[in-house]
Design a binder for these strands. Structure first.
Lengths: 149, 149
DNA sequence: GAATAATTATTCGTCTACTAATTATTATGG
DNA sequence: CCATAATAATTAGTAGACGAATAATTATTC
């Protein structure tokens, strides 16, 4: 990366692209009649695929903070989509699971989410995907490795 | 993109990568003693480079909503870094500019931001940058074009 | 076994995102 | 010229991100 303007651009491009994706998915969910935010969907998706998961595991998987997970789970529980059950042997934890209503929402919303994913990726190729993964993982690792700046 | 898991992944990768970058930059600014959030920095950066810009222009350039810009400018004004001046001929607008203190902050913070940008891009090549731009722009456009899903 | 440390979830405070609605001002059309 | 529409900024409300601090429980250590 040689140009000064480019150095500014990659951060910016990632930022506006994720905003576009989130906004498109949010709008699509609302238009389809779902009372769900994108982040609420993300948690529902994880709980569906890993029934009984507890909140700190969910926080790790989704890269959200524990307080954020607490708040979103509270909302989902109020909406009757998620239940907190006891974990035998550890009274600090909750087993999270979808209610019948929650499973129904998941199954109805999934095709919409999949459609948005397909729409976003569009005509990009498998080779593009390899580039994409390599570049994003590289950036990520550059901020993860414990080497000094 | 052929695999089911991949379809889930690209959204996720963008999301966690931008979080990493933001968190790294935020931490670096705080460690260096700046009382600035990343978004506050973004506005300062734009105002420095385009003195007299008004808020709706700033909102467009940064892809933030007008209310968000209002709030961040309020904070920057309270901190004494930004001034709102009158626009001759249109009393709805404000001319935004950095105060002396704001310019000083900009000049001291800029090298830190540039360093974080370099660190994030790391060893990726110019060719990687071409791929990156093409892929991100494509995803962005797939949600921008007025063609139906 | 009791004191201490670590873990899990929560609460609080600040900041940002987005929508809808409001105010003030400017532009436009009849 | 006047009514109406459009624009710029703001306010209010809900949701999410993150840090710091707290409470309850579990694990560790002496």
């Amino acid at each position: 990366m040689t140009h000064h303007s480019d150095q500014r651009a990659y951060f910016f491009k990632i930022d506006i692209t994720i905003k576009k994706i989130r906004n498109a998915l949010q709008k699509r969910l609302l238009d389809a009649g779902f009372d769900l935010t994108v982040d609420q969907w993300v948690l529902i998706d994880h709980i569906y695929r890993q029934k009984g998961i507890c909140q700190n595991e969910l926080a790790e998987l989704t890269f959200k903070d524990p307080p954020t997970v607490t708040r979103i789970v509270d909302l989902l529980q109020k909406k009757g989509l998620v239940e907190r059950g006891p974990v035998e042997g550890d009274r600090r934890k909750f087993r999270l699971s979808l209610t019948k209503s929650g499973k129904g929402i998941y199954q109805k919303a999934f095709p919409i989410v999949a459609e948005i994913r397909r729409k976003g990726w569009g005509d990009l190729s498998e080779a593009d995907y390899q580039h994409f993964v390599r570049i994003m993982d590289s950036i990520y690792q550059n901020f993860t490795d414990p080497k000094a700046v």
